[in-house]
Nucleic acid binder design. Structure first.
Lengths: 184, 184, 184, 184
DNA sequence: CATGAATGAGTTTTCATTCAT
DNA sequence: AATGAATGAAAACTCATTCAT
């Protein structure tokens, strides 16, 4: 693995365990097995690395959603597939997902604004996708509920219980029944 | 207002705007209009004050819920009254609610564990309350969904839009219809 | 002596001995007998303290010159008194004078520009003062020579030989004879 | 141009623009278009390169002066030719001249001593040359004034205005008239 | 000869906390 | 009770230098 990847891996794990401020650059480089200065060959600052992680996940989640914008499946099938893709991406980037959905908001004002912006991007795109099947006001409420649901799933299944991807999809299947009942 | 209250008021506002780490003791005392040393007459440390805020809100929310444990109303009436009381308490302690539900988890490992403990206390009590009307497995899922819903409400209505208590209750009423559809 | 003055005194001596970059904040606080953090109670940064020293001396030298702008003495008397006042001020702020006239230019680009600006301020004011007695082109050349002479005096008498104020004035007297010969 | 010369050229320009400390080895190699490690094939250290530049200019200036030690021209002709050679050498090594005459003194204690030593070498040789025409005490004062004059010329004409060699010699001619008036 | 990734000692700066008044 | 000057440990970041390729 490249030096840069070793640093990223160490950072992801530490940020998701200890939070942003309590993760020192010295923790990261120690875990990555490189010298302090090496960190700054690859990242301008601790903040720079942190935002790179956040932005990468955000871009991927957006791309995952975009693929569904033109899909012509039935509402329930589309939502089911979309959410399965979404939580697969999240599962494959557990640590950053935890950081993104649960830590980012409380770090400082700058990051708070980034969180609000990025979460609203996701929510709006989701709303646009389901607008074809629901009136626009409802699509907004539902997209909001879905984001909240995903966030809760990350907390319960990844942050607390560290469940497998299979278990995650299983839960999703069950919960979708309830959700569909409520919105149709 | 007493000196201690002035410090608490300043701290609540700053923590909820800037987060825990970015709020300096010097910011708090400046906003409270007292000297640096005065802070330590009333609080052992910055952490001590922070936890006092968190614990106070948590205790109040628990007390609000407990009152409903022995209520014999119908499920829907009980839940509706309970949530109205709950969000009223939250509204009256907006800043700490934001800190509690959105910031606490990401500060450090110690606070993460406190968050997990306290949020699970709330959720379990809620589950116990609705267990009378629902099978225990469902009560767990529903209490979980309700906490997630409340959290989302705090984010959208208090943190981002800063809406009034009336508007909050209005939304709650509308959303409960959907929620009840899904759980019955 | 106040803490701030102790820091300033230590800084002046160290900057004038070791230069700006080789003087560490840790050197200054050690010499001043205060803790590292104390430095930052009084100065925003090392640069901030350095510029405060420079600006204070520059302001004083400008004020010394300004007093002569409206004096109606003969050219030779005026110049003699003016230069005596000037070198007295310089003598009383030896260390900063050495920093100002000999070190400032070579520290970095920012300080280079400050030096060019401030030395040109002094030179222009001096030129204005002697313009009454000399044609404007000559006044420019002469003020330039005088600044150069003062600079050389600081190097030889203060930086290398550390001579007394009396010896400095004595030299000035002798040298002025030569200078007057050349410009009249 | 050889790799070594490319490094020297880059270093000269950077040192004379930004000063010693603010010029990083990474700046030099980037400007020279070579790799970081290549620097150390040709120079033991940054200091080593810097001193090589300084010593080379100093040796050349000393050699320029030495040629006049046995010249039997009249005082005025000798001084005029000598200074023309001197400023031609300086003009051809502008950047190092600026570093030598204006930056070296303020870098650190080691370089300060080197400056004092080298400038005093130059001044003493100059004094020896003019001792044949002037009493020894006067020769010292005059050599001192000449060095001060040269320094001022470098500041005004090379560092600030970047004038041509022709313009430099023109000024020298004019100024020498004044200087000769004062010392004879 | 040349490279450039890696090093780690060294520096500035921050800030929670203390304590004499 | 209240002050606020002083502390010093701890953190982010820099950069001259090395060395395996």
């Amino acid at each position: 693995m490249s030096t840069k990847d070793r640093i990223i891996l160490a950072a992801k794990e530490l940020f998701s365990t200890k939070g942003y401020h309590e993760t020192k650059v010295s923790d990261i480089v120690e875990k990555a097995g490189v010298a302090q200065g090496t960190f700054y060959l690859y990242f301008k600052s601790k903040e720079d690395l942190f935002l790179e992680l956040i932005k990468t996940l955000h871009r991927r989640l957006m791309e995952d959603l975009e693929k569904y914008y033109h899909k012509e499946d039935s509402f329930e099938v589309k939502i089911k597939n979309l959410l399965e893709d979404f939580i697969t991406e999240i599962y494959n980037n557990k640590e950053i997902a935890i950081i993104f959905f649960h830590y980012l908001l409380g770090i400082n004002e700058e990051f708070k604004n980034i969180y609000i912006q990025k979460i609203s991007d996701l929510q709006k795109l989701l709303a646009k996708i389901i607008e074809k099947d629901l009136p626009s006001q409802d699509s907004f409420v539902v997209s909001n509920l879905i984001i909240g649901y995903i966030r809760q799933l990350i907390f319960n299944c990844l942050l607390i219980k560290n469940e497998s991807l299979e278990r995650l999809k299983e839960r999703l299947g069950q919960d979708l029944c309830i959700i569909f009942k409520s919105i149709k």
